[in-house]
Write a protein that binds this DNA or RNA. Structure first.
Lengths: 345, 345
DNA sequence: CTGAAAGCGCTTACAG
DNA sequence: CTGAAAGCGCTTACAG
């Protein structure tokens, strides 16, 4: 019956509910928002009418009068081909949604194809007042979105930001796991350990590169060669060509992420290098497919889902004006599988 | 200066623009929506003021008065672990966004953790009038969302729907490619060809199963064994255990998607079956990583991105009241790689 | 405890 | 060509 009314195009509004319950629309509003000043009896009657008519408050009306969009924004810039295999994107959104689902907030997603497009869409999303807050991911060195969002005054939560970011931040520390990984390789006997880096200018690329360097320093080893990657398997494949044609190729290669490692291994195998017996290869992310590779991938397990959950909770608190502090989720942890072994004698 | 006004909390509104331009707010509205009845001179003046103040119309006001949300909805149900490696999700969204980006529409994404949650969120999204239209993906046999959305009267576009779906549909035909795939296997000499199916009750699982059967029929071969899968690598791994322990194991296995095939190959290799020389394995989807497997995966190349583009265009037309017809994008096509070969003699 | 009124920022007929 | 007015569906002080 409620459904029936809805479907005939006669949308149920707060006025219908008020009329049917014999109260004013303000009483309906207060009753359903849990405000004080409505008797239990009236509240129950209103609730029953709302239920039976199938009324769902219009977010348009609520937004305009209440000055809240009931939505959070996520703007990403990705090349389509990178997005498909992206190890972060889907898990992060899943984590965010697991929190928003209960709060009846919506996630507004925008994918920009260019850097300037991303910045422009951030700006419009905020200025059009479509969202109450924003998630800032894939942060770059001197990211132009940081001053933009700060200036617009939009509540923002950063994910894995570097130091000096003015927004509350959710972090998963790469350091302990990377230290374990480097110790694992050094312990196996590796002395020439190379790195295939992540996308240029990304803060997480820089973090992983630094952690690799520190691991070498800690073991008193020289810094091996670094090849610029881009977080894709193609990049890993190219890096294999480059590193394995060196006069003294590395015996271990630390890749900036799993996709890179998978591409590296595929190409290394193709040109006749046995993984792990001639060259050990490691990833970063801990994607599910890593365990189905042959050899299965030694990697660091990250938690995009956990970051999403934490970020959503933090952003909602921030919007509600609650006091917030940065959140650290459990650090990425080493998973040793078959793609690492002792170097050739 | 425009930015400055915005940032001080004094949001620029249409009233500010009207005052500064010396016109009424209705003129501003008409001018910026490209309506007739404003002189070129006035329009230019208004545009200049809008630009210099940095005014972006509030979507809240526009939605309420204009009865449009300027947003489209996508509600998915996925287990978090499936979502991460999902071959469809990210590409589809990328395609949708490539169209929405130009039209200043937003994509509202909701991820439900349960079936009932998904249906409830569909309902609330529509009733709260948060969106103008909806994408219907992952359609099941007798999907309860179909009558729901039809009843609510929400413009909806279906993706790869079966016959009898009342909504305009975007399709990528699996038939020609599956026919080619089966012919490829039969041509190699395979006579015992098994199938690992997709998730239970999904329409695309049924389609691929049917296509496999038809291929066998066309070659006059008996239907090999079918193992129930679930579109995951774990499911493929379990299927390998089951099929390869048969008294007469199949010499070729057609998997419902690439993840399943990858899991199958990993497990088959582990228990001592050489792929492709003892058993050929095929996938479906054409994920990028398929070409980095060893052996690289024979599969059908699909286009989630193309489906997303087409679906977004169709849905926007539908909302605008334009006449629409179903759209067929180029069929999924066979890619022959190293995971298929002649059966053992 | 309850209701009438103003207002959120726009769009859309309708007069002039 | 331009403006004043009504209205979209709510929330929030403010009176009673």
């Amino acid at each position: 019956m409620g459904e029936w009314r809805q479907l005939m195009g006669k949308r149920v509004t707060i006025a219908d509910v008020a009329r049917e319950a014999g109260v004013s629309i303000s009483s309906v509003s207060v009753a359903l928002n849990g405000g004080p000043g409505v008797s239990e009896e009236t509240r129950a009657r209103i609730a029953e009418v709302a239920r039976s008519t199938g009324w769902v408050p219009s977010v348009r009306g609520r937004s305009l009068s209440g000055n809240r969009a009931f939505a959070l924004g996520l703007v990403l810039q990705r090349k389509p081909e990178v997005l498909e295999a992206d190890p972060f994107f889907a898990g992060f959104i899943g984590g965010v949604e697991s929190i928003l689902e209960r709060r009846d907030f919506a996630l507004v997603l925008q994918l920009a194809s260019s850097r300037s497009g991303m910045i422009d869409r951030c700006r419009r999303l905020a200025l059009a007042r479509r969202i109450d807050g924003m998630f800032l991911t894939d942060i770059r060195l001197r990211d132009p979105r940081i001053p933009l969002l700060a200036m617009l005054g939009l509540p923002t939560v950063a994910i894995n930001a570097g130091p000096g970011c003015p927004f509350p931040t959710v972090r998963q520390d790469p350091e302990p796991g990377m230290r374990d990984l480097m110790a694992h390789l050094v312990g196996l006997g590796h002395r020439r350990i190379a790195h295939v880096s992540g996308g240029k200018g990304m803060i997480h690329s820089a973090q992983r590169l630094k952690a690799w360097r520190r691991g070498l320093d800690a073991a008193g080893l020289p810094h091996g060669p670094v090849v610029q990657g881009d977080f894709t398997s193609e990049g890993g494949s190219r890096a294999a060509d480059e590193l394995l044609s060196l006069p003294e190729p590395p015996t271990a290669v630390v890749c900036a992420n799993d996709l890179t490692a998978i591409g590296f291994i595929a190409r290394a195998t193709e040109i006749g290098f046995h993984v792990p017996h001639q060259v050990s290869v490691t990833g970063y992310d801990g994607i599910q497919l890593g365990s189905f590779m042959r050899p299965p991938l030694t990697t660091l397990l990250t938690s995009p889902h956990g970051l999403g959950r934490a970020a959503a909770g933090l952003l909602l608190d921030l919007i509600d004006g609650k006091p917030v502090t940065d959140v650290e989720i459990q650090p990425a942890s080493l998973i040793i599988r078959g793609s690492t072994a002792a170097p050739p004698a």
